Computed example of a mutant assay.
Amino acid sequence: MADPTFDPRPAAPGDDSARPAPAAVPPRPAAPTPRLLGWEVACVLALSLGAAAVSSMISFAGLLTAPESLPDQTASLIGSRAAEERPWLDLSRQLFSLAFALAPVLLVVHLLHRSRESAATIGFDVRRPGRDLGSGAALAALIGLGGLAVYLVSWRLGLTVTVAPSALNEHWWQLPVLVLQAVKNGVLEEVIVVGYLMLRLRQLGWSPVSAVLASSLLRATYHLYQGVGMFFGNLVMGLVFCWFYQRYGRVMPLVVAHALIDIVAFVGSVYLIGRVDWLPSPG
Rank of each mutant, 00 (worst) to 15 (best):
A141Y: 11
W206H: 03
P208S: 01
Y271L: 14
G136Q: 07
I192A: 08
R131M: 14
H113P: 00
L106H: 08
S59P: 00
T33H: 05
A259E: 09
V212S: 01
L145C: 15
L77Y: 08
L199K: 02
I263F: 13
A138W: 14
G146K: 15
V105H: 11
R127L: 12
V270F: 12
A18P: 10
F124E: 03
L178F: 03
G62I: 03
V228E: 10
E68V: 00
V54N: 11
Y271M: 06
A141Q: 09
L204K: 01
L37M: 03
T160V: 03
F231K: 05
R219N: 09
R93A: 08
S59M: 13
Y151I: 02
G147K: 09
T121L: 12
S55G: 12
Q73F: 06
L107S: 07
P87T: 04
P208F: 02
R200G: 00
P26A: 05
V236K: 11
R128F: 02
V228G: 05
A138R: 01
P282D: 11
D125K: 06
R275M: 00
L260D: 13
L148K: 10
P27E: 15
W172R: 10
P26L: 08
A82Y: 10
P282H: 08
A182R: 13
G144R: 04
P29L: 07
P104Q: 07
V256Q: 06
S92F: 15
A164Y: 11
R9V: 13
W206Y: 03
G195F: 02
L272S: 01
Y225W: 07
W172A: 14
L213Y: 04
V105P: 05
G186N: 12
Q73D: 06
W155P: 05
E117Y: 07
V194Y: 02
W88Y: 09
A21L: 13
S118L: 05
F100L: 15
V256H: 08
E40T: 11
G186R: 00
V41N: 05
A259M: 10
H258F: 06
N185R: 00
L98Q: 09
V256K: 06
G205E: 02
R128C: 06
E85G: 04
G146P: 14
V54R: 12
D262E: 14
G229K: 10
D3P: 04
M198E: 04
L145H: 00
F241P: 03
S166G: 08
A138L: 15
P29H: 09
V251K: 01
A18Q: 15
A214Q: 07
L279I: 05
V153F: 13
A141H: 14
P22H: 13
F96Q: 11
S48L: 11
V256Y: 10
L199M: 04
I122F: 02
L45D: 04
R128T: 08
V161S: 07
V270W: 13
K184I: 00
S207W: 03
L142T: 08
L218N: 03
V267Y: 11
V270T: 11
A214R: 01
P71K: 11
S215N: 06
R19C: 00
S115F: 10
H223G: 04
R114V: 01
P176Q: 10
G229T: 04
A83N: 00
H258G: 00
A220S: 06
D125A: 10
D262P: 11
V109L: 15
G136W: 05
D15R: 09
